[in-house]
Design a protein around this nucleic acid. Sequence first.
RNA 1: GGCCGGGUGGCGAAGUGGUCUAACGCAGAGGUCUGCAAAACCUUCACUCGUGGGUUCAACUCCCACCCCGGCCUCCA
Length: 479
Amino acid sequence: MTIQIYNTMTRRKEPLQLRQPGHVGLYVCGMTVYDRCHIGHARVMVVFDMMVRYLRATGLQVRYVRNFTDIDDKIIRRAGELAISIEALTGRYIQAFQQDMAALAVLPADIEPRATDHIADMQQLIGRLLANGLAYQSDGDVLFSVDRCHHYGQLSGKSLTDLEAGSRVTVNEHKHNPLDFVLWKAAKAGEPYWPSPWGDGRPGWHIECSAMSMRYLGEQFDIHGGGLDLVFPHHENEIAQSEGSVGCHPWVRHWVHNGFVNVVAADGQREKMSKSLGNFLTIEDLLQHYPGETIRLFILNSHYRSPLDFSYALLAAAQAAMDRIYGALRAALPLTGDSPCEPVAEPLDQSDRETKRFLQAMNDDFNSSQALAVLFELVRQLNSAVTQRDRALACAMTGQIRRLGTVLGLVNTDVNSWFQRRPSLAAIDAAEIERLVCQRNEARQGRRFAEADQIRQALTDLGVILQDSASGTSWSWQR
RNA sequence: GGCCGGGUGGCGAAGUGGUCUAACGCAGAGGUCUGCAAAACCUUCACUCGUGGGUUCAACUCCCACCCCGGCCUCCA
């Protein structure tokens, strides 16, 4: 079964073609670290994490590179505002990023390079571009000459003439073409700089991704990803400068972009969530209300290329869906024992109908939405198995749910801790709850139902939900 | 203005020439179970896929027009 993957360059799904069979080189444009991550960032990270997990689950060897942009105008400005060093600022937000990713079950990339550690690589590329006549110096800057690039505009489906006609870029004296972009910026007073053959300065934004991706994946590689908003100009420029410097085409085989997260405003209008619009919610904010897995399910419930509207109501629905999965696993616990969780040690095969359908969905441009549907079918089967007290089937289904869930980065939590994650405002602790549950069960055994109901009501008022079953009473915090 | 996406039930969201009288989740209704609940299970919940034409034996799925929404063309995931 081949994996079909949508290529922004050709605007169609294509079979995944690897330069080296069995090995995938993947580069994703990461964060500019000057603030907390918002849900838009969460989406890119979760989506590509899901892809990496899946590619690995099919037996492919993936080398995943995701960078940190740790030098740029916004970082410099922000550090100035906070009166701290750039290193302190970027260090702080890299740490915050890693915390957020851990909560979302996003695995670290294999290599997480920082721009400032690759200045020499960038300078080398810039030197080659100058030597190849594709770049020029002007007032201490080094600029890329888009007119010298035949393919310019191919990725974003734009032509140079269209771009110039509709250009909002102000005409700049020292640019040959208004669309020329900076490779190396001359140092300004008070800003950090590095020495270079063209004078002191710092790199332009786009060159870092060319330098770091080629550094770790070679001059040509398989997949380059990022948010849809990076298609133009960032990725367009990366292609121009990369192909121009190393002289290979195509530089990258597959271009993969995820859709935006939109925010629905009070008036019903939706718009892209972004830093510049100031309408963003941070992952940290969301984690106050819901576990990371719920946010992850919310993201993976729609296809990665579709727009995704965010609201707390939608997140609540995702929470209910997660509870359904964990609810089934919990109900099965008395039958299956504590940890029938099978690690994904071996590549997924098509041994059963559900796994086959799961693979088919994921092979079709990572259709996580359909894959999730398979997961929920397994959940129903597990519930039935538990009702029928079919231990073998319950164990099998539990294993399947854990196994396929892991491929999506879901179902990572211990069942009881999922339901017993204590809300911050809770006025009662677990020991006290257990004590009351026992007391109530004694009352029930003595058929003193009024007393039992009274205890249950008291717990309900404190936000604790009870469920009686043949194998005992379980409790959860109210959502 | 140029260029891209998209409009599917109460909500979210798959599907994209016949298997679709449309997956899956949330919410709702009825039933089973339960001391009562809850959960679970069963049944039910779009004769219909923005609107109007066209192509076809057959369209939600292809083509045309129109309406509406979002995005890119500037930093942005």
